[in-house]
């Protein structure tokens, strides 16, 4: 099957420090891929290359090829804004804007120039349902999103990304700031979203990686050590480094 995202020979440096060394990694459509590894291994940095969020940092140089289907992500002619609409991102901290729940979810739609109220209302409901939040907030869509709990706020952040209908959703440790119950709800949400979206998730929690992902990539010190099906990588890794990490010998 043709992968949705293909990356080849990816190198990234902050100034003269090279943080990613020659990464080759492909992502399949409608699968969840987990990126794991110890802190500072480059997994988040790599993830942020996939919707060009690293462009915002001064002094970063990125080389290599990034393809979303046939689109060259780093081509001069590529519209970054358009790319980010296709590759959405959910961050570690829930980040509701200081707007109402409805306005939060509709934010991306309005950026796209959608103004028809019925269309927006319908998309907001759909996205909130997909994020498993509709039943909890349907009676108070006009309340401030800041009044929600942490787990709900994170699902708002997810719904906000879903409303734009991206092809790929990047998640940078989306549950690490949440309690176990909220995390479990988010995980259920992600599993349900798999049929419509391709999800790439960075996580520190190895159990979470095994519960969620179809494939897992293990990073260490800026290198991609091993990439395989999640089952193989955790049960029968081919590299000793991977084995040590997934069995808790370091990291």
């Amino acid at each position: 099957m043709q992968p949705i995202i293909t990356t080849k020979n990816v190198k990234l440096s902050y100034g003269s420090f090279e943080a990613l060394h020659d990464i080759n990694l492909d992502f399949e459509k409608n699968k969840i891929t987990a990126l794991i590894g110890p802190s500072g291994c480059g997994k988040s940095t790599y993830l942020r290359c996939l919707n060009r969020m690293n462009d915002l940092i001064d002094g970063v140089t990125i080389t290599g090829s990034f393809k979303l289907n046939d689109l060259d992500m780093y081509d001069e002619k590529t519209d970054v804004v358009e790319l980010r609409r296709k590759v959405g991102m959910v961050f570690q901290q829930p980040i509701p804007f200081p707007l109402s729940i409805r306005e939060n979810v509709a934010y991306g739609l309005k950026l796209n120039g959608h103004v028809a109220k019925e269309f927006i209302d319908q998309r907001v409901e759909e996205s909130l349902r997909q994020a498993a939040l509709w039943d909890e907030v349907k009676d108070r869509l006009n309340d401030s999103a800041l009044s929600l709990s942490g787990g709900q706020q994170q699902r708002i952040s997810i719904a906000r990304v879903l409303a734009v209908r991206p092809e790929v959703i990047l998640m940078d440790e989306p549950t690490s700031a949440l309690d176990p119950i909220s995390s479990a709800q988010i995980e259920d949400t992600l599993l349900a979203l798999k049929k419509d979206y391709t999800i790439i998730i960075v996580t520190h929690n190895m159990q979470q990686a095994t519960r969620l992902s179809d494939k897992t990539a293990f990073f260490n010190l800026g290198n991609l050590i091993e990439f395989d099906t999640t089952e193989k990588l955790f049960m029968n890794p081919s590299k000793k480094e991977t084995d040590d990490y997934v069995n808790g010998k370091f990291g």
């Binding site: 980010r84 961050f91 980040i95 804007f97 200081p98 707007l99 950026l111 952040s157 734009v164």
Partner: peptide, 25 residues
Amino acid sequence: RHYRQASLALGATRWQTIYKVILRA
């Protein structure tokens, strides 16, 4: 700072981020 990142990640331009989120906040 998160507001800026979250807004840009949703496909907002810098100007949209400024007047829809930053000035609002």
